[in-house]
Design a protein around this nucleic acid. Structure first.
Lengths: 341, 341
DNA sequence: CTGAAAGCGCTTACAG
DNA sequence: CTGAAAGCGCTTACAG
């Protein structure tokens, strides 16, 4: 009877060596078989898979990452989780990546470039297989970290004409123009723009608003209410009250996001301001609850799930090398007309 | 001039060896110094840190995880991201763990035990340093995976008397009883309970509702409207309409979550049902927007940020071995009375 | 307090 | 198509 000598530092886990031994092949062949490399004899490969199943073998991701210099995690950076927009985006990313063997690793930047940089510094050393980031607005240091990491990166929610930049988004400016045009077509003349957060995408919507009103000869800078505060229902209510008091002749408001628009609608309810009779109200994104507001909210349905899916798909191609050139995909948004305008 | 021989597989990265060389010590000493072990001569440690800084050394997490059999990631499993409750929880967890050198890895189960199991099977091989899960309701297989992994685990949002189980939460049942009692004190007799999702915590609130009404001799099972659908504003509106039509004598509704309560309030606005004149409406969780509803919503403020912080703190103790025994911490909730009741 | 050796569990690069 | 050797970059366990 041999003494039960355990190796000095065994973790007790079933290793590739065990599988190889059971299948009667070398560890390299076992490794190749399990990773589905083509260069393995089908019969051998089958024997290896069988042995792995029987032993309950699970590859060690750390060993794999160390040896191959690449993990299967995909770092996904979003500004916030409290905006349902990004939750929809993340869900779509997960649905696309996870079944393909990649695990999204969510990082929240809070619209703060220092935080984004810290997240990159923390997670890039893990050698993620890919990177999904929101928009193009980041510190130069963050940009350098991404480029020098050599990790394939797709930008979400905005589009860019810059060559070699992979992105999936839609035209925030055109969408902003579309909803403004809709208000004009409803016969409104004094159309206000209420915004919070003031991130680049909000400012692009603002530009669409301005462009449209200028073309109509109706632009008035006093009708722009821009707050750097975090977007919220409570803030929307305050902005609405403020605007109605200070600018009694306003006959329409384009809120840059549905949550502040909902707040505006609730404030109108409380103040008994007739919507759309006296003031038309429009939002942006078509978030949960907008269709149930009184009156239901006119808004832009943004394709965030589609952005997530298409962005993850593009990244998959980049990571696997099946997509040679980074692309820029522009998706469609949709104007949803409800009773608030 | 020596030929520029690069090692066969160098990743080009600065390694611990480089730092040790620059500091004139062995790699083990460098490793100990950088991890802050006490057994290193302060002067040497300082020299190592200096060298590391100068060279821009960043430890390789994969190598570290492989050698130490432990990563610095903490797996956090929540049911949904679309419920603001869990977003608050995650934010608190991140704020607590990240500065201490641990990175939360978010997994979303969608209230599906098969998905939870798959997430555990996928992420446990990464040897996370700790595990944070929502509630106690999971498959036996999932439970076994957790126990056998040996990874310290804290359960969030519910409390349990079971010994050896680490948890941080509050009494869902008592909170449900508290809001029901409040409605009774307002003189309501026909108090309905509207619920969605029907996860264990919702059912515990239901139990608190039943207990309280039974004690008051006012329990009527026909006043319970339980929907297995996902909780949402739209569903809340439907449940409200349904209830008002089928049970015209209902004079109060306790919604199990603020989002369906908000939907109920919006339906009341649309149907011109007087709240609280004809029907009092109460919610649960105190989510964004509840204070802005018309009328503002009475609800229970649940301590989810506190749960996240305290749960992460407890896990920190468990991971570091400074907390010998798993504990069960019960936190307080707060009744927020607004004008809807 | 410090270090030489071994090892964590894989994959790469080379050879056949 | 298959494998022996080396190596990825750390830390553990032992010795001094």
């Amino acid at each position: 009877m041999t003494a039960n000598r355990r190796p000095r530092r065994s973790s007790g886990r079933i290793t590739l060596n065990d599988v190889a031994g059971a299948a009667g092949v070398s560890p390299i062949t076992a490794s190749r078989a399990l990773r589905g490399e083509r260069t393995v004899d089908p019969a051998l490969a089958e024997r290896v898979r069988e042995a792995a199943d029987r032993l309950g073998y699970v590859p060690d991701p750390a060993a794999r990452a160390l040896a191959s210099q690449r993990s299967t995690q995909v770092l996904v950076l979003v500004p916030l989780l409290s905006n349902a927009l990004f939750v929809d985006l993340l869900e779509a990313v997960h649905r696309t990546l996870f079944p393909e063997g990649f695990q999204p690793l969510i990082g929240v930047t809070h619209y703060d470039s220092a935080e984004e940089e810290l997240l990159l510094r923390t997670y890039l050393p893990h050698r993620p297989a890919g990177l999904l980031v929101t928009g193009f607005d980041r510190s130069e240091a963050a940009r350098q970290l991404i480029v020098h990491s050599g990790v394939p990166c797709v930008h979400l929610m905005e589009t860019s004409a810059a060559p070699g930049v992979a992105c999936v988004g839609f035209s925030q400016q055109d969408a902003g123009a579309t909803i403004t045009r809709h208000l004009l077509e409803r016969g409104r003349k004094r159309i206000a723009f209420c915004a919070a957060q003031l991130d680049p995408r909000v400012l692009q919507r603002a530009e669409g608003y301005r462009r449209t009103l200028r073309e109509a000869g109706l632009y008035d800078p006093r009708l722009e209410l821009l707050s750097p505060e975090r977007s919220s229902i409570a803030l929307g209510a305050r902005l609405f009250e403020d605007l109605v008091q200070r600018m009694p002749d306003v006959d329409a408001i384009f809120f840059c996001n549905d949550d502040i628009a909902q707040g505006g609608l609730l404030a109108a309810n409380r103040m008994r301001v007739d919507v759309p009779g006296r003031i038309a109200v429009a939002g942006f994104n078509d978030l949960a609850g907008s269709a149930q507001m009184v009156p239901p909210l006119t808004t832009i349905r943004t394709p965030r799930s589609e952005v997530g899916r298409a962005g993850a798909d593009m990244l998959l191609g980049l990571m696997r090398g099946t997509l040679a050139q980074p692309q820029c995909v522009q998706l469609d948004y949709e104007l949803i007309v409800r009773e608030s305008t």
